[in-house]
């Protein structure tokens, strides 16, 4: 196993990017860190800069104005970096697919700059914290 992957799996640090979400997935992401779910027990912690992150938690449909910022955040994150598309909007634009200011789901934007990016999908509106934890565990086991 690549030592980079090994160290990533041990304690994944996550950075949260909102690219046009309705706050719903965001508060569920924060919920994962608070006493009831408390993923910090497993070494998953929220960090303040994409440069420190092993994984990006991207919530929300990507709007035209947020897309360059998402690309910037992804480029700043050290590789290998796992991108979690959290919520129906991030996975496939969801209810906003007709929006004129919407450029696409997260994977489309990320694949444009890095075709080999590792992208995981956690669907739901919003996904429950249990679903997010399960998604993270499954992804890390699959690496």
């Amino acid at each position: 196993m690549n030592w980079k992957i090994w160290s990533l799996k041990k304690s994944p640090w996550v950075f949260h990017v909102n690219t046009g979400a309705c706050n719903n997935c965001d508060i569920e992401v924060v919920n994962c860190l608070t006493p009831k779910f408390d993923v910090e027990r497993f070494g998953v912690t929220l960090v303040g800069s994409p440069r420190h992150a092993d994984a990006l938690l991207v919530t929300g449909v990507v709007t035209a104005q947020a897309a360059p910022r998402l690309i910037q955040a992804y480029q700043q994150a050290p590789k290998p970096c796992v991108v979690f598309s959290i919520g129906a909007c991030a996975c496939g634009t969801g209810i906003f697919h007709k929006g004129y200011h919407v450029v696409g789901p997260v994977d489309k934007i990320i694949r444009e700059i890095d075709p080999n990016a590792i992208i995981a999908y956690v669907p739901g509106c919003p996904p429950k914290p249990e679903a997010m934890i399960s998604g993270i565990v499954k992804t890390l086991n699959a690496l």
Partner: peptide
Amino acid sequence: SYNHRGIEKISESLQFDQVPFLVSRICGI
């Protein structure tokens, strides 16, 4: 305007009883 999704415009393309699902996603809280 980073979060602008054009909800008012999308709403005009949905039926009256579909719009509540859209507007509940204006803000999740």
